[in-house]
């Protein structure tokens, strides 16, 4: 599995497991912000939406915008 494939899977996993939070997109974004290193964030920012669930994609888009 390539690193980006792994990051996509991780982002989707996070989004799925935070689906019951009040704002799943914000919760997913916060989790990635708190636990991923800058390179991992950059890789997923540069990756685009392919393979990402809608919540994960929205969370990453929000993070990217705030970066």
């Amino acid at each position: 599995m390539t690193t980006i494939d792994n990051l996509v899977r991780m982002a989707n996993q996070i989004a799925t497991n935070l689906a019951y939070e009040g704002d799943p997109t914000a919760a997913t974004a916060e989790h990635i912000q708190l636990f991923w290193d800058p390179r991992m964030k950059k890789l997923i920012f540069d990756h685009g939406d392919e393979g990402l669930s809608p919540v994960a994609a929205a969370a990453i888009a929000a993070l990217k915008a705030a970066a």
Binding site: M10, T16, H31
Partner: peptide, 9 residues
Amino acid sequence: TDYSDWATN
């Protein structure tokens, strides 16, 4: 495998 916990890896 490489599969891991969603929150902590």
